[in-house]
Design a protein around this nucleic acid. Structure first.
Length: 212
DNA sequence: ACCGGGATGTTCT
DNA sequence: GAACATCCCGGTG
């Protein structure tokens, strides 16, 4: 029983630093039409100051949405098969964003299951940045979508649930630089938070031989 | 539960 | 050619 009727976050919410927006996005609701989930895990990326950010070396065709106005969705393709989604922060020209890493499914569970046949449980439906995009049908078509006007059906809603008073924090997942900063936040004890895979899993180059 | 390896293609060196 | 803001499956404990 949410204290009030869900409504999209205003543009001003996103116009701030991703280190502030990140933890404040916890417990907001990501909606793609009628398919919805509560945001339980996020990470901040900070453009030119952040070597792990796609925007670290300046604008490219891929990352241009990050340099655009706040409150839009930056969707990128990775590992040859997955889409991941971020909320763009800060005024136009400053490339910051918050990666949406996990949701607790709320509505449209049947559609999520149909979109994610590999998920073995409700818990796995949106546990991970690419999984949640798959569950909500987010892909290339949504890069640049406006979260405030919901021009492509995707938005972030405030239903009155406040962020956790003391969000859990730790290093970001899956990166090999700037691993010391704790720019990942999650709702403490929530089972839908993605597993932190310890250590950088380095792929061996395709032709590399084992040490004899 | 935890771990390792393969999938798959765009982007950048 | 290598890296990549990942996921899935099959192995083992």
């Amino acid at each position: 029983m949410p204290p009030r009727r869900p409504r999209p976050l205003p543009r001003s919410f996103y116009r701030r630093d991703s280190l502030v927006v990140g933890p404040e996005l916890l417990n907001k609701v990501l909606a793609s039409g009628a398919v919805r989930g509560r945001i339980v895990e996020v990470e901040a990326y900070r453009g030119g100051e952040d070597p792990a950010s796609h925007a670290y070396r300046g604008p490219t065709a891929r990352n241009r949405t990050m340099f655009g106005p706040p409150g839009h969705l930056y969707v990128y393709f990775t590992y040859g098969m997955h889409w991941c989604a971020n909320a763009v922060c800060m005024p136009e020209g400053v490339a910051q964003a918050v990666l949406l890493r996990a949701l607790a499914p709320l509505e449209g569970l049947a559609e999520m299951r149909a979109a994610r046949p590999a998920a073995r449980s409700e818990r796995d439906l949106c546990r991970g940045p690419a999984r949640l995009c798959q569950a909500l049908g987010i892909d290339r078509r949504h890069d640049g979508a406006d979260l405030v006007t919901a021009d492509r059906g995707v938005t972030v809603l405030d239903d009155g649930t406040p962020p956790p008073e003391a969000p859990a924090a730790g290093p970001r997942v899956g990166i090999n630089v700037a691993a010391e900063v704790a720019w990942r936040w999650w709702v403490p004890d929530d089972p839908h938070v993605s597993a932190h895979r310890s250590g950088a899993r380095r792929r061996r180059p395709a032709g590399a031989r084992d040490p004899a």
